[in-house]
């Protein structure tokens, strides 16, 4: 059983390689944190000083004093959570429908949905902006959430996951007299928790980090998401005069997500066990 034990341990060589790779991965992040802890005036002269003390929290203090930052944070949370919940609901339903139900045109419709994966956002953003203007949806939460809900990847992902669940389960449930709906809701959906977790995390991330749509849809500062709000704080030449502040903003914007990831990392990685899309 040596081979088996082997596969569960990192060899010293692999460990060394991974450590180097991890260093490359983390160095830019540490650099960012270091810059965020320096005074702007000092960085304007030489960003190399970030390697050395003195460090300061003045940039973080400035962010927290910015009256609107918490409002933006709240907007981002609402939009990202709303998008995530919506995507999970819609894609679970549709994924189940495509994976398990027989109906005319199923294959063609599925391909039609997959086409969406190839649509560049720039190809739809302007007509969509006009559409939302016609419905008065700009500067509103629905206006920010809705575009994220047309997520072909989510449907594909959930469909593949449902396909991986043995059909015997369905047959047994249907024999017991369960309706299609009960089967979906009570039997199959609970089994997809790993896929939900994965899709949820990626949807949340994509929504949290979205930039162009909120930039042109939420034009009022009380409706900004965090990404757009922080961008609005950058002056035209802020990179020179407020580098430390800018970097502190970067850290601040990433922090909530890092915390979420740290809390859920077991579920996310572990859960993906079954979630492999392509089963």
């Amino acid at each position: 059983m040596k081979g088996l034990a082997d596969r569960h341990r990192l060899s010293p060589l692999a460990l060394a390689g991974l450590s180097v790779a991890a260093l490359v991965m983390v160095a830019p992040l540490l650099w960012t944190v270091a810059l965020s802890l320096k005074s702007n005036a000092e960085l304007m002269r030489d960003s190399g000083t970030a390697f050395f003390a003195p460090y300061t929290l003045e940039n973080y203090r400035a962010i927290l004093q910015g009256s609107q930052v918490f409002g933006w944070l709240l907007n981002s949370l609402i939009v990202s959570l709303g998008t995530t919940l919506g995507v999970l609901a819609l894609c679970s339903l549709a994924g189940y429908g495509f994976a398990r139900l027989e109906f005319p045109g199923r294959r063609a419709l599925f391909v039609f949905v997959l086409l969406g994966l190839a649509v560049p956002e720039q190809a739809v953003i302007l007509p969509r902006h006009q559409l939302f203007a016609d419905f008065g949806l700009h500067n509103s939460y629905p206006g920010l959430i809705l575009p994220g809900l047309a997520a072909p990847f989510g449907v594909f992902f959930m469909a593949q996951y449902f396909r991986g669940i043995p059909r015997e389960l369905d047959e047994a449930a249907l024999l017991d007299g369960a309706s299609r709906w009960t089967l979906f809701w009570k039997v199959l959906l609970p089994l997809t928790w790993p896929a939900q977790a994965t899709l949820g995390v990626f949807t949340f991330l994509a929504s949290w980090n979205d930039y162009w749509w909120p930039l042109i849809s939420a034009t009022r500062s009380d409706r900004f998401t965090l990404t757009v709000g922080l961008a609005s704080s950058q002056m035209n030449y802020a990179q020179t005069s407020g580098l430390g502040y800018l970097m502190a903003q970067a850290v601040f914007a990433a922090l909530p997500i890092l915390i979420v990831y740290a809390l859920f990392q077991k579920q996310i990685v572990g859960a993906m066990a079954g979630a492999a899309a392509a089963r």
């Binding site: 819609l90 894609c91 339903l93 549709a94 189940y96 429908g97 495509f98 139900l101 109906f103 199923r106 419709l109 949905v113 969406g116 649509v119 190809a123 739809v124 953003i125 302007l126 007509p127 969509r128 006009q130 559409l131 809705l146 575009p147 809900l149 047309a150 072909p152 449907v155 299609r180 709906w181 979906f184």
Partner: peptide, 24 residues
């Protein structure tokens, strides 16, 4: 039978992605 499952998504998908694409 399939409509309640795939209908909501398709509606949004067509409205928010396909329609703007065709408009484009």
């Amino acid at each position: 039978q399939a409509a309640p499952f795939i209908g909501p998504f398709l509606l949004l998908y067509v409205g928010l992605l396909i329609y703007p694409l065709l408009d484009g």
